[in-house]
Nucleic acid binder design. Sequence first.
DNA 1: CCGTCGACGTA
DNA 2: CGTACGTCGACGGG
Length: 892
Amino acid sequence: MTHEMRPKLLLIDGHSMAFRAFFALPVENFTTTTGVATNAVYGFVSMLISLIKEENPTHVCVAFDAPGPTFRTEQYPEYKGTREKTPEDFKHQIPLIAEVLHAMGITTLEKPVIEADDILATLASQGSEAGMDVLVCSGDRDTLQLVTQHVTVLYPRRGVSDLARMTPQAVREKYGVAPVNYPDIAALVGETSDNLPGVPGVGPKTAAKWITQFGDLDNLLAHADDIKGKVGESLRAHLQDVRRNRRLNRLLTDVELPAAVTDVTRKPWDRPELDRLFESLQFRTLRDRLNTIAVAGDDAPAQASGAAIGAQIVDNESISLAQWLGEEAAPFGLAIDGRGTPVNADAWSVAVGRADGEAVVVNLEESDPDQDASLRAWLADPAAPKVTHGIKWIDHALAARGMTLAGVTFDTELAEYLSRPDQRSYDLASIVETHLHVTIDSVDESGQGALDFDDGGANVGLASQSVAIARLAAQQGAQLADAHESALLADLELPVAEMLARMERAGVSVDIDLLRGLDEDFAATAAQCAQEAYDVIGHTVNLGSPKQLQEVLFGELDMPKTKKIKTGYTTDAAALAELFAKTQHPFLEHLLAYRDATKLRQTVQGLLKAVAADGKIHTTFQQTVAATGRLSSTEPNLQNIPVRTQAGRAIRRAFVAGSDFETLVTADYSQIEMRIMAHLSGDDALIEAFRSGEDLHNFVGSRVFGVSVDAVTPAMRSKIKAMSYGLAYGLSAFGLSKQLNIEVSEARSLMADYFERFGAVRDYLHRVVEEARQTGYTETILGRRRYLPDLNSDNRQRREMAERMALNAPIQGSAADIIKVAMLQVDRAINDLGIHSRVLLQIHDELVVEVAPGETEQVTKILREQMGSAASLSVPLDVSVGVGHSWFDAGH
DNA sequence: CCGTCGACGTA
DNA sequence: CGTACGTCGACGGG
């Protein structure tokens, strides 16, 4: 089935985009020799050219706000009342833009009393009805209410060239509600820039929650009395404001216009006029760019960039899904529209695509029972090979529909991460472009698909994604095999992803009351510290503002200057401690204590905010972020819960076993990085240190200082400890002297003594950098690579940075490999025994397990055995295990 | 409004 | 002038 070319209508809010352009481009760079500011014209026209080139619309219209009052200001005189008056340099640019548009054969519209957005809304609705694909380009979020399957809003993110494609999914993801309900949210939250106050205390989160709960604003307002708490009161006190906001943010779709939507086709250019205009505006490059786009009337419009991935959507009502899925042995690409979060996940439609271009899209909301059953069976079949892009995400979305995912043999996101671990993002569209040199139809910036329904109701964008994923896998698979990283994907990262999905969904139970108590305690401490600090200096100051602190410390109090940073002098904890040593000024003590308390409070508040409806915290583990192969944890980050100080560690009391469970067990590797160092370097002395069973730092200290193990003093031990760990990070003598507060010469001789005794460590560190410089990458014990092109940089700073990364990557990365293996082994052992305990968290060298009743002994045994055997190194892997009611109690 | 910076929590 | 992260508040340009 092919798709007929639908007419494409591009609608632009002239004022709003020109205004954005005005602020995005520095006026100094865009002034003609005669002193006329042209930055807004330049930015606007530049954006327009890109849009026309990329989207190739058949119809274009630019709407402007007419001068004078609008019907909104008539209803509410304060509307947009807080806006500063239009900058002088801007005003004259609007007519210039209009002139360029006319010369380009583009229709412009404005109408007294009506705003540009209302014109756009009217045309968008007409266009939709006429079967057009509509793009609305505006910096006014009110236009989001127009978004449908056929209407996409292009919303400027930065400047005017970076536009977010706001499809129904994108709106849902960003605001948590369907586009039609966006104005409901906006009415509740209010709009500062329009001078429309909302309900105090209600932000986008609360608003979205309410709208989801009550369906729409009217129903919410009808049940305003049911809303409990302070926000409920606040809502009832501002009902009128909300109603007014909603009245004002509704865009008109029935404005009488001089042109119908079918009239706004692209007309021929007036070449002489365009040349004259660009000449007088002194836009040389822009004129050249203009000539690269298709002129209206020319046939065969230029492709955006190469070809697009075409998918032939197989009409799933005319075939047997089961049969179609059985026809092909090669892996299918699997793409999903939905939400892949640990909680509130959902899946709306599923696309399954083949590398040859055929695809089936199943709408989960309305698929028939047979089809649903076939799809379920296929998804759950471990023998039916599938390729995903972001398997954990997909797993969550499907799980929300009670669907099991098995048989995923490849994941294009994880594959790309292994091939290029330093990338900032791995969105499907850009990977497809780099590997296949084609674009995907209708993929939004999240890479997770945009609706673009054709007449049959199937989803072209999603289908294209599934096809692209299938094609991508073949190419990446070869690349991965060349790098000997195929097993790393299949046997490590893929199963880890699946396990992480279960860990995230399980969540960790928290004692909310305990957290609330801590919050209050920390708040009280912070308030007291702040007051004491104010008393010392005789006035208040924002202790959280480094800028204001600098004024107090180095201005008022005239303290010695600390280390220089971009914005002046640092006020970090180390510097403040040093200042206190010098000045004994009590302000510093109070400030440091305040910092401690507020930091802890922030942590607690972050946790409280993250507690889901089930009373648990569900973090998200990021598997493709850390370049070394580690995981990271977000929303909230459960890998940086305090442990070092007593007050901080108390927060861990709030993490407890869930209701069907008995206790928590935590197991961690001791000194895993140093053990890896011993293994990789093959240093006999260091290996002996670990085999001897002596305390590592005492052992090393005894060799470095030439005394017996018993004679190593705590001071000696801490120096050794700092140095040992520093070495794995590429520490210099300078850095060591800084940290230990000793002379550089002393640090240097300490390092010399160290390497005298542990020479193979020095040789190894040297070797690893040199090899990486030759090959271009470092490798972990499982063959995970990190590419470091900067090792050959001419820039010393960059080169030395890369050298430290090269030192660290094999060590940190191997530790990451080992704990990932351990996770899988622990998971499997738990499964094999058929017991019900489960791993909840991974904190780089530690696993936290929730233990089902009566399983404590089995679990501790599994942890010791499986973590201990996750790798065979030339030194033992030492695991320490703790059991307790909370994470605090289990700690050791 | 959003990105960046400084600060600081973890391994 | 020690690696790898994430999050917060303040700030400043947009």
